[in-house]
Design a protein around this nucleic acid. Structure first.
Lengths: 210, 210
DNA sequence: GTCTATACTGAGATAGAC
DNA sequence: GTCTATCTCAGTATAGAC
């Protein structure tokens, strides 16, 4: 390997949500995920993936019709897990805007901390997919973004929040989670529950909750 | 083009800081920057760059010894501009921690808003460089990160700031700027001066300034 | 579902004339 | 400093046997 890896992302075992069934297909996805996160999609060849799995390159084509379809599946899995986590969090959060923000930020942060490689690949490589392969994920992404936006707008309307700018503040809150895989190391001193608490506190401070 | 481009990044003229002298070398860097931002480093071929410039591929090798060296130059330019902007801002900011944070966040945000493609390429592709080519930029990056970290630590020590966690809050403040190119469109209703004000306000709220 | 073998294409880079 | 021509290799993917 000639390139400079993302150090802690590379060594970590690439974790996929439990929703993906075991078997060769899952092993392909896990291996591709780790390599895509470390070397990028275009920087990883079908041969690299096959070698890691001790398979011949041709064997992969029994499971996926193309390398792009492997990426598309990862992108879809990531977006489904994210959307499901936010939806579930909101469902159990009561009606108070501050509680809803807490639930959303907590879920957003925990997911990015638990699946850092998936987050990196999903966010950096979705643009390399042709539109027909990325469309379902993009739809989910828009819905997930709307969760936070709507909670903030409702909190503002109810007089609970006073952010300097609703859209920019929503982006800032989301950015905390999205950037997590680039600096946070789960093996360090800061555990992910504490981190989620910190992010909820930062989000509520940005929103000027009263 | 088969891939889904980052819509507004693709159409925008790729801007390089004024420090890069005019000439063929600059034109190569600008074109490579636009293509790398849209298609990724590995997704862009030397032939793509040459075609866009109406040159033969071999002509590029009179200006750069390899494709990787083009990327390395862009990464270096980006890090130098960033470091220079933060250093200059801090120099003119007085001694009050809140003023220093304001200056740093303002510079950080303005730079990411003014050079979105450069920010994207620098952050997503620096890892594809071999360590010897990325080392100078990595050194600058560490110094730039230290600016904000030290101002926050000093503010905490002086009793001016009360962030829930200094490191995580510094990361959150930085993330606002880094994620800007992925959602902010300069052509829209939110001008970059207002945006910089919003980000400084958000940063100071996160820090709990009194 | 995995293998061996290979087709085909596009990649980065170089040689040498002008 | 740019051109034409070309080398060499690695890439995705397929054919057909087991």
């Amino acid at each position: 390997m000639r390139s400079l890896p993302r150090s802690h992302l590379q060594v970590q075992k690439a974790t996929l949500p439990a929703t993906v069934p075991n078997g060769t297909r899952r092993r392909i996805l896990e291996t591709a995920l780790r390599l895509f996160a470390s070397e990028g999609f275009h920087g990883t060849s079908i041969r690299d993936v096959a070698k890691e799995l001790e398979l011949q390159p041709s064997a992969l084509y029994s499971h996926f019709p193309s390398k792009e379809h492997i990426l598309a599946e990862l992108v879809q899995i990531g977006h489904e897990a994210h959307h499901e986590a936010l939806r579930g969090a909101l469902l159990n959060a009561g009606t108070e805007p501050a509680e809803q923000v807490r639930a959303l930020v907590r879920a957003h942060t925990l997911l990015h901390a638990a699946h850092p490689q998936l987050a990196v690949v999903v966010n950096e490589e979705i643009h390399t997919l042709p539109p027909e392969l990325s469309a379902p994920a993009m739809a989910l992404r828009n819905q997930s973004a709307a969760f936070l936006r709507e909670v903030i707008e409702r909190g503002v309307a109810m007089g609970r929040f006073s952010p300097p700018h609703a859209v920019a503040t929503a982006a800032a809150i989301s950015a905390m989670g999205v950037r997590l895989p680039y600096w946070y190391e789960p093996a360090g001193t800061l555990d992910i529950e504490t981190l989620a608490d910190i992010h909820t506190e930062l989000a509520l401070r940005m929103l000027g909750r009263r």
